[in-house]
Write a protein that binds this DNA or RNA. Structure first.
Lengths: 119, 119
DNA sequence: GAAATCCCTGGAGCGCGCTCCAGGTCAAGG
DNA sequence: CCTTGACCTGGAGCGCGCTCCAGGGATTTC
């Protein structure tokens, strides 16, 4: 089975080693397997999960929600709850996109106004 | 001339009174006029500026950049620099919208995947 | 003119999400 | 082996953007 050292996991996931440890402490990652000497070895599954975590963080999901989602993922019987959580999040993402686009339009109006002033 | 008390300015602008004071301290607002007793009286111009500040904050402009933009605005000869700043910001806003949309698509794929699992 | 609000200042505190550090242990190359 | 570099833990620190507080003065309302 392919595994990854902390440095490799950081490289692949795009999170720093410190952040990976932080996420594990926070319960966002389930406990990572260790070598006999205590060094972490990340599996491909771990990296897959980290990929989703990256998606959720990039879209502004707070750490606390991510933790809740991670906890739900430990229990097979929570599929519906997980989907609900993701759909709520999707709605919030849509709202921020909408806000961003609306405000961007205002920003561009301002720029056009400057242009009209002979800039 | 119409003026606004701190509470009214907060109400209209959507910023808290504390935030208004903070922005003034930081130089994001030019010094607000005062009554003889030292109470602030916001003008319509102040509120117009706050409206732009809100737009820029909503689109993620950091306080430091906002401050720089405010400083430029004190000098009439900086129109070009101000436009450049806004256009840089517009590009960053566009990037975040793009990232958000891309990640939202991944999120929705994940939701569809759950749906395929019979949720 | 007294009571009830509102506002003032300077500075401390906070919530979030990491990030860094000291003081050590482990692992891989020569 | 021995060196070198990666990794470990627990906990402190940080940058951002506010937010709150004490102790006091100003304003409005009746």
């Amino acid at each position: 089975m392919i595994t990854y050292s902390p440095a490799q996991a950081a490289e692949v996931s795009g999170f720093s080693i410190d952040t990976l440890r932080y996420y594990e402490r926070e319960g966002i990652l389930r406990p990572i397997a260790r070598t006999s000497g205590g060094h972490r070895t990340y599996t491909e599954d771990d990296l897959g999960w980290l990929d989703l975590v990256h998606c959720l963080r990039d879209t502004g999901m707070p750490i606390a929600d991510l933790k809740r989602y991670a906890e739900l993922s430990l229990d097979e019987a929570t599929l519906a709850a997980r989907v609900a959580l993701l759909e709520d999040h999707d709605r919030r993402v849509q709202e921020s996109i909408d806000t961003l686009r609306g405000q961007q339009e205002r920003l561009r109006e301002k720029i056009r106004w400057y242009r009209g002033q002979g800039v």
